[in-house]
Simulated scan of single mutants.
Amino acid sequence: MVSNHNVKRTRVSPEALEAKRLKELSKVKEYLALNDDLLARKRSKTYRKEDFEATTRILSINPEFYTAWNYRREIFLNGLFPASTPAQIDEFLSSDLDMTMAQLQRHPKVYWIWNHRRWCLEHVPEGPGEDGDSREGWRRDNWNKEMFVAEKMLDRDPRNFHAWNYRRYIVASWPSIRTKDDELKYTKKKIQSNFSNFSAWHQRSKVLGAMWEVTPATRTEQDEGMSSHHTYSRFWLIILEEFEFVKSALWTDPGDQSAWIYHRWLIGEGDDLVVLQREIDVIEELLVEEPDSKWCLDSLVHFQRLLLQHKDESSVDVSSIQQRCAFALTKLEAIDPKRNQRYQDIKLQL
């Protein structure tokens, strides 16, 4: 048989269809039986090895069954761990990390798998590890492996926000694994390979934000060896480098929102009238090349409205800015008619 699209179809006999239906029905019955059995075990509060194996069976079929994950952890805490040495506990948890890694290969965005890995890491006991003489050895070894896992998952899918969240969790929990400079280099590499990687931009903002929150002096202290008349602090040097970096992304793909959102965050961090005006000039320069760019026009309106908030601080031409905003909004109504009401409301607020 040939379809209308010239795709050859294989005729399936009624017998084959019935066999398929019965096979699927058998799988459903098997799963329901496992489900009922597991819930009965949980209600009985039994924490034996066979109960643990029951969670393994059902989770191999349905890794989103959060009750099974919770019961599995109860078995660890109330049954297996109390009867085990620290070395055995470490072995149990390492085995579960291996099991969940195999599951992530098939289900990379199931929250409960990532969540269980976190729990396992947090319950690794003190032990010598590979170096043989450190109480933190087992913990350090496992956390180091987890960074490798996160990077492998991000190599497979650079936009997997579960993997990005997990990476942030690892760095926050065990800071010695990666310095903030290491994270900036890593996010830059990911962004340069794909400027639309919103998760990588978001990670970069988190790292920089954490760097700048360390001490209030961060934004004003001078670099060692800089002349006293130099006005840039370390904070501003990094900000200026970031503006150059994000500018390359905006010019490469002005239609992608990821870099524009980061750009707005960066200007908010700078919170400086001179920087604001300079970035408006950058957008207007880009708009000459991309006159119908929605994000160019939208950002221009956004930043010009911020400029109006500084009208008492400088010689801001309010009337000119309002006219330019109105012109951009009118153009946006034509380019992006689905958001007409939003643009009209902004006009009324000018």
Rank of each mutant, 00 (worst) to 15 (best):
D292F: 03
T187W: 04
W212Y: 07
R106H: 10
G268I: 01
W69Q: 07
T179W: 06
Q304R: 14
T55E: 08
D36I: 01
I238L: 01
N62A: 15
Q192G: 09
R72P: 01
K145C: 06
C120N: 06
S258V: 08
E91P: 07
P108G: 06
T330F: 05
R11N: 00
R159A: 14
R11E: 00
E146Y: 01
R73L: 13
L59V: 08
I283Y: 01
Q341W: 12
H230D: 15
H229S: 15
E91I: 12
D312P: 06
I113T: 02
K49C: 08
S258H: 02
L34I: 02
S94H: 05
W265V: 02
T67C: 03
P158E: 14
G209L: 01
A83K: 15
T187A: 13
M147D: 11
V124I: 15
S199K: 03
A172K: 13
G255T: 14
P125F: 10
E64S: 13
I113M: 02
I239V: 09
P128M: 09
G127K: 05
V171A: 15
F235D: 03
E183R: 03
V2C: 03
N160A: 08
M147T: 11
K190E: 14
K145Y: 09
P108K: 05
A68K: 03
R339M: 10
I170L: 15
R43A: 13
